[in-house]
């Protein structure tokens, strides 16, 4: 005589029950439990995140160093040439800067703002998605507030602070689908909106057709709206086309830094 299990005793039934429960959670999202739990965990766990992320960065840098030994000589030569070129360019810009300063004094304009920066280490990233957020080790106790811009070295805009916890904060990068920033091209002064594309890229959109967009133009923040400072570097335009409704121009933007490999960012504290 063979013993047959009831369907309710099978693994498949349990899997279906579990899947149904999770589907229910996905549809109805029990945020009233998740949000407070998340805030508590973010507050107590930042030292652990700090230790793990530092270790991961050290290992990654070590592996990267070992794998790139062969290329170091070539890279060194290229950097040497780049240094010489930048020194020449810097000399030219110094002259322009002093001329600009003199003109500002003559026109009685205010000096350009200097940023109050707070350095922060990246201690977490979006694991299951497309790099939709970065967690850094600075929070409300260090004076970080929601909406503050985050930059990388060389005034490269990374994104904005969207959530703040006592000892950590979460940054929404420019690639996030909800990220919207006002931008302007240099040269050309074409104004438009810089939008994230599903966490995978950046799009310069809503540019009027009577302005000229070129694929090598550089994109900076326009400062419109007052939320972000002016002239933060966003990226270089890559490909230009008309929007699907043929009303505006669009361009894909190549950011100068890889957001997924950032170890340190700087949060601008004096924007408001």
């Amino acid at each position: 005589m063979t013993l047959r299990r009831k369907f309710t005793q099978t693994k498949l039934f349990r899997a279906l029950i579990a899947a149904a429960f999770l589907l229910f959670c996905i549809i109805f999202q029990p945020r009233f439990i998740m949000e407070p739990l998340r805030a508590v965990l973010a507050t107590v766990s930042w030292p652990i995140h700090g230790v793990f992320s530092s270790l991961a960065f050290e290992i990654r840098d070590g592996v990267h160093f070992l794998s790139s030994i062969g290329e170091l000589k070539r890279e060194n030569e290229r950097l040497h040439q780049e240094t010489v070129r930048l020194m020449a360019e810097n000399t030219k810009w110094q002259a322009v800067a002093s001329e600009n300063e003199e003109l500002r004094q003559e026109l009685a304009l205010l000096p350009r703002e200097t940023f109050d920066l707070k350095a922060a280490q990246v201690i977490g990233r979006d694991a299951a998605g497309a790099g939709n957020w970065l967690t850094v080790d600075q929070g409300t106790r260090q004076g970080i507030k929601r909406g503050m811009p985050a930059i990388a070295y060389g005034s490269v805009l990374i994104g904005r602070v969207t959530e703040v916890f006592p000892e950590s904060a979460r940054i929404m990068p420019l690639t996030h689908p909800d990220s919207v920033v006002s931008g302007v091209t240099v040269p050309g002064q074409a104004q438009g909106i810089v939008k994230g594309e599903y966490g995978l890229g950046i799009l310069f959109d809503m540019v009027l057709q009577d302005t000229t967009l070129q694929s090598s133009d550089r994109l900076v923040t326009s400062g419109l709206g007052g939320e972000l400072p002016q002239d933060l570097f966003i990226g270089t335009l890559q490909a230009v086309r008309l929007s699907p409704d043929h009303l505006y121009q669009q361009a894909s933007v190549i950011p100068p830094v890889d957001f997924s490999s950032l170890r340190y960012v700087f949060i601008i504290k004096n924007t408001q």
Binding site: L22, I26, Q29, M34, A42, A128, G129
Partner: peptide, 14 residues
């Protein structure tokens, strides 16, 4: 994992 990373239940759990 979903709670800490996104604050919402995702398809990853399923």
């Amino acid at each position: 994992f979903d709670t800490i990373s996104l604050g919402a239940v995702t398809w990853f759990s399923l």
